[in-house]
């Protein structure tokens, strides 16, 4: 499902020299697999998720997701690919103010090709237990509820890959456990490959597979 090979990403440093950000030899994740990526701050967890989602393009190597090598695609095609195949849950959930919970979920389908199923956003919000908060703006939702809206948004286009970047980072333990369970259950129910970047050992332990980013080079 996901195959990263001989991956190298670097940025030009202030001195003009290339500063390596991430190097990875060979890494795979199977369809429906759930795994945690762990590592310290600045270890490259988020960078790896951004490479898998096509937000970043490696300087070198293969980023094959669902049979497509994103490293060979132009930015616009990677954007389209991301809209249609990948769901992304961010650490601080990144919901847009000025849009209701349902509209935030619907935003997930705006840039994908084809029309979303009518009522899908409402269905997803029902599924994450927020049927009664659909028209609430994010500012009127608790952090746990925002996490659920963010998950519903990530699922809007029926992704094959779900990326979660520190999804429990801003939650209390109870909410963290609930959100984590929701993520895993949803991924399992829809046979979605779930990759969760976390620095939290407890969260990582909840996953059947856990890879240390530093060990992938």
């Amino acid at each position: 499902m996901i195959h990263l090979q001989n991956l190298r990403l670097s940025y030009p440093g202030p001195d003009g020299q290339e500063a390596p950000v991430l190097a990875l030899r060979d890494w795979r994740a199977a369809r429906g697999e759930q795994l945690a990526l762990v590592g310290g701050s600045g270890s490259g967890k988020t960078t790896l998720l951004n490479l898998i989602s096509g937000l970043l393009k490696p300087n070198q190597g293969v980023v094959e997701v669902a049979g497509t090598d994103l490293a060979t695609l132009g930015e616009a095609r990677r954007d389209r690919f991301r809209a249609e195949h990948i769901g992304y849950v961010f650490q601080s959930f990144h919901l847009l103010d000025g849009f209701s919970a349902r509209e935030n979920v619907e935003l997930g389908a705006v840039f994908a090709q084809g029309k979303p199923e009518p009522g899908r956003a409402a269905e997803l919000l029902e599924a994450v237990g927020l049927g009664h908060r659909m028209n609430y703006p994010p500012s009127k939702l608790s952090v746990g509820q925002q996490a659920r809206v963010s998950l519903a948004r990530a699922l809007m286009n029926k992704p094959e890959v779900l990326l979660a970047d520190e999804p429990t980072g801003s939650l209390d333990p109870e909410n963290a456990a609930q959100v984590l369970a929701l993520l895993r259950d949803t991924a399992e129910a829809h046979n979605i490959t779930l990759i969760c970047a976390t620095h939290d050992r407890e969260v990582a332990d909840a996953f059947p597979r856990c890879d240390r980013v530093e060990d992938l080079a």
């Binding site: 989602s53 937000l55 930015e75 616009a76 954007d79 389209r80 991301r82 809209a83 249609e84 992304y88 961010f90 990144h94 847009l96 935003l107 997930g108 705006v110 840039f111 994908a112 948004r153």
Partner: peptide, 16 residues
């Protein structure tokens, strides 16, 4: 900036 970045992460092209 955050709004635009979120939209990009949701698949919006720069052109969009």
């Amino acid at each position: 900036r955050k709004e635009f970045a979120i939209l990009r992460a949701l698949g919006a092209r720069r052109r969009s």
